[in-house]
Design a protein around this nucleic acid. Sequence first.
DNA 1: ACCTGAACACCGTTCAAGT
DNA 2: ACCTGAACACCGTTCAAGT
Lengths: 208, 208
Amino acid sequence: MSRTVLTREQVLEAADDLVRQHGPDALTMRGLAARLGTAVTSIYWHVGNRESLLDALVERTVEEMGAIQPTGRTPATRIVSVARRLRGELHARPHLIAMVHERGLTERVFLPAQRALVREAHTAGLRGARAAEAVRAVQFQVVGFVLVECARGLAPAETPGRERPRKTASTRKDPALARALARPADPDRLFTASMRALVKSLLAQGGT
Amino acid sequence: MSRTVLTREQVLEAADDLVRQHGPDALTMRGLAARLGTAVTSIYWHVGNRESLLDALVERTVEEMGAIQPTGRTPATRIVSVARRLRGELHARPHLIAMVHERGLTERVFLPAQRALVREAHTAGLRGARAAEAVRAVQFQVVGFVLVECARGLAPAETPGRERPRKTASTRKDPALARALARPADPDRLFTASMRALVKSLLAQGGT
DNA sequence: ACCTGAACACCGTTCAAGT
DNA sequence: ACCTGAACACCGTTCAAGT
């Protein structure tokens, strides 16, 4: 695996693989060196240290995520389409986006999508601070949702019912509700539903 | 700091302090021992190992967060009030809630609040699966938002403008929008605004 | 310019031994 | 039942030394 000379790009590539498969904790300098068939210290020459290696990985990820084209006819559906695509992209790299996030670079990841969102908000009639707020609300909603999903996905598994949902006046009178809450949530449905709900309200403000 | 015999509760207390102040990474078994004035190995006797120590801390946090009383007249404002209080509580322990999250115990933290949310959704006329979806949408929105905020808060600082927001057709025609996007977001305002927007739509579905 | 091994200071954890 | 020191296997990082 190390026929030619070691290059910074090779180091980044191997590190990216490791993080994408087993998470940041699995990335150890020694393990990486072993994987590349070199001494640990060579890696330090190419990337500085572990922290700046992670920085470089994050930078890479940020650049990989390109612009996103909206689809649909109304501004509302177009915004929701951007949100869903964004979620898809983030979903493909759960560990990386967590790292992007820890480094406070979330805004950067969102810049390309932000332009599309701004355009849609504008054609929907939102202006000024109100438009900005709508755009940001959508951004926060998307990242927030994905973060929740990631944590859930990487966790061992939601211990279900250890402390089962209590029967309350409301759930006793509405067994369908009780059943729905007992089932684990369907993230896809939930995402689309709450995204639609949010966008609908945000754009409605523009009409008035 | 170690006049009497060492107790499990003391270990947890000291660990909690450490995590709350400097985050989970700052919690080292050796450092904790030093702080308590005992040998590292004593700690192992009381709490097993680092992982189960963190588990115990999380369990503690989950139990600390009690029920939340809604305030306000309409179901919408009452739900928003629950959301805001919840955010406040989570905000007070950013590191802990991240850990709760990593362990997939988010639902547990939300159980007390969930009861209140269910009741409000019900009085707003939502039933069955639709009510469950609304409740969950609110829950996800709150945790998601707080997670985004925490990451932002713990990060060194959002590097602003390194790649400044491009001028687009929309922003050129709407300088107020451009300015609003250039400023950092006000999390309090944004949270309340998007929460209100979401809840408004969700409850509107019940009316029809 | 690039790579190396040895060494340092730090981890979590185990274990046999003490009282 | 509770605490201890010694030891193990792992870290990230530095540094002087090689080519």
